[in-house]
């Protein structure tokens, strides 16, 4: 039964290669997109860290998004 499932009556190579290619590409794109997002979150947090305390307070007060990016970055580390 398992060998039937793998060979799929001779069509296994076509069926499995289609599914493997699809999900491999999806996995790689997911990994790269997530990595880029984390990289920018990290760079953003680093740049905020380099600001003076006064500037930092102003940025976080004026931009809700900035504080959210910082919060989401802090959650992941």
């Amino acid at each position: 039964m398992i060998s039937n499932f793998i060979t799929m009556n001779g069509y296994g190579i076509f069926v499995w290669s289609s599914f493997v290619i699809t999900f491999l590409v999806c996995g790689v794109v997911y990994y790269k997109t997530r990595k880029t997002l984390k990289k920018y979150e990290k760079e953003f947090a680093k740049e905020i860290g380099e600001l003076s305390i006064q500037q930092k307070k102003t940025v976080l007060r004026n931009s809700k998004i900035a504080s959210k990016i910082l919060a989401s970055y802090n959650k992941t580390i």
């Binding site: 997109t33 920018y40 998004i65």
Partner: peptide, 23 residues
Amino acid sequence: LIFLMKYKTEIIKIKKKNLKRYD
């Protein structure tokens, strides 16, 4: 999922550019 992550990255890029004003 990919769209939202890419969209979020684009927003962060814009915010990062805006940070330069404070520098």
